[in-house]
Simulated scan of single mutants.
Amino acid sequence: MYCPKCQSTQIIKYGHTHYGKPRFRCQDCGRQFVENASRQPIDQPTRQLIDKLLLERLALAAIARVTGVSERWLQMYVNQKYQKTPKAVEVAQKKPGQLTIQLDEMWSFVGSKENKQWIWLAIDADTREIVGVFIGDRSRQSAKGLWKSLPAVYRQCAICYTDFWEAYEQVLPSKRHRAVGKETGKTSLIERFNNTLRQRVGRLVRKTLSFSKKLSNHIGAIWYFVHHYNASLRS
């Protein structure tokens, strides 16, 4: 018998699986396995397809049906991916000068609609890049979290257009803050991105069965799409 990972023959018995099959362990690399496994390791093309499907408005159960993987394996894969997703914006380098951003917040929930999670977003009006993200409640503290998530050049130079939510007035520099109504069109880009986000991330649809049950996965899914969106602007 050979280890499927390192091909070592230093194999020992290691109990049984919950299905009753004998389990073995490689003494060289620590890999645990069963002989003649009915399920083979998920190959790289399938993983790449899953990565793309996670950017579409699909439930995990639907992705499992399309790709043929088990829902249990898929959930573990998604947990690891969202945990490793960077929680900071990646934008093209900007020179100090006249910058304009639009800020807005959108409602979402985790587990039940009583557990509200507001997604605070900022978009560069010229490049259309998402330059700030924060997920929390709708308080002044969360507005401050959005402000801190902006790259330094935006905090130093940018003119900020928002709606009339009072938390912005308490956090943004008064000389560069412009509170405007929707009729002005000064917040149309961020409102359009909010719609894009709801259309592409199934867990953000208002009436959905694909909602998040873990806050960490909720946050990870949003950041995963934001990174993809910004990267698509540069390609």
Rank of each mutant, 00 (worst) to 15 (best):
D51W: 00
K207L: 10
S188P: 04
F33R: 07
G181A: 12
G20A: 11
V133H: 00
K148T: 07
Q27H: 11
Y14M: 00
S108R: 11
R23E: 12
F225I: 00
K94N: 04
L74M: 13
K84M: 12
C6N: 13
L103Y: 07
P4V: 01
Q93Y: 08
S216V: 13
R140N: 05
R128E: 06
S70K: 10
V201K: 07
P4C: 04
D137N: 14
T208Q: 10
V226K: 03
V34I: 15
L99S: 06
G202F: 04
L103Q: 02
T208M: 08
I222C: 01
T187G: 09
I219Q: 05
L189R: 14
K84N: 14
L172D: 00
D51C: 02
E35C: 05
F225E: 00
R65V: 10
Y168Q: 07
A88D: 02
L150V: 04
Y168K: 05
L58H: 15
R47Q: 15
G111H: 10
L58T: 08
I12S: 08
L209R: 14
N217A: 06
Y2D: 13
H228Y: 15
K52A: 12
W165L: 11
L55I: 03
N36L: 06
R72E: 10
S70H: 12
Q80I: 10
W73P: 12
A179Q: 15
T127A: 03
S232H: 08
Y2G: 05
L99Y: 13
I12A: 11
K95E: 15
R200M: 07
F33W: 12
M1T: 14
L49D: 08
A37E: 11
S212L: 05
V89F: 06
A59I: 05
D43M: 01
K95H: 11
E169L: 06
R203H: 14
A152S: 07
Q117V: 11
Q170T: 09
T208L: 05
L146K: 00
I101D: 03
I130E: 01
V69H: 09
W73M: 07
W165M: 06
S8E: 09
Y14V: 00
L58Q: 13
R47N: 02
C6E: 13
Q102W: 02
Y224E: 01
S188A: 15
W118V: 02
E105C: 01
R65A: 14
V201H: 06
T184S: 15
I130L: 09
W73Y: 14
S216Y: 07
Q80W: 09
L121M: 15
P41T: 01
I11F: 10
L103F: 09
Y161T: 06
S188K: 13
R31K: 14
T127P: 02
G30A: 10
W73F: 12
Q48I: 02
K186C: 06
I123M: 00
A143P: 01
K144P: 00
S232W: 04
V226W: 02
A64P: 03
N36W: 05
